[in-house]
Amino acid sequence: MEKVLKTQALTKRYGSLTAVNELELEVPKGSVFGILGPNGSGKTTTLGMVLGVTRPTSGNFEWFGGKPSFEVKQKVGALLETPNFYPYLSAIDNLKIIATIKEVKDPDIEGVLQTVNLAQRASSKFKTYSLGMKQRLAIAAALLSHPEVLVLDEPTNGLDPEGIAEIRSMILDIAKRGITVILASHLLYEIEKVCTHVVVLRKGHLIFQGKVDELTGHDGFIEIKAADMNKLETVLQSMAGIENIRKKDGLLVLALQQQISPEEINRSLAEKGIYVSHLHFRKNSLEKQFLNLIKTTENETA
């Protein structure tokens, strides 16, 4: 599959602190790509580097298979951390500046403002906007050059539930138009709601990369143990309804899809002549799974 963005061993150090550590990312074209991590995990730093405002300490990145250039910036609409505009100018004048910078011929300023529901306040000064309106204007600005990629860093930060829902449905609409969206967030359920792919960062390390349903799609985990662990694993691998199998503390941890129940697993194993000595079912909340993911790697790295 075609890659929109690729990073190789991308690293940023601030003195002794490594904000991003040898990061390897691949963002597939057409995906809604989530970057998930707690505060200070290096999301903004990563995006800052690929957007050309933070100098990488080492490593590389490629947009559309090539070096960063003006053409790349035309194809990428981005919002980093906070919406940044000239507060004394109206939305229209702010967008005019951006259209000039991006060399957009006949910018459809009215159109993008309509897309984000700001048409009525188009000539009010930016400083009179509410936070939600500011975020929406930032999305409008990013859409101005008909980008192929939209980069959003915590676009729902500080918004009320209504504003959050509005931004989310906006992101989904944009993704439906075929625009690749890269979305950084520290909220798992946000990523789960809108993203197709996800990477999880912790202290600048990549600890998970895959499809969102691999992280969250299953209904729970089963920890399982039998006398013959190898045979157990082979049998389980051929069984439908199991997302993935991990080894942990001498147990196998199965991530389950919804349609398979612990009883079913037990019965099919018994049919194959395997009797489990330990079977424990955990139905995790998503938030807890995310925390678990972070915790397990913490133990591994410690």
Partner: peptide, 18 residues
Amino acid sequence: SNEYQYRTYRQNIIDGLS
């Protein structure tokens, strides 16, 4: 200095200025 205060300097660079 406003360009720093409003962070529009950074946004200008993100938007396409070198």
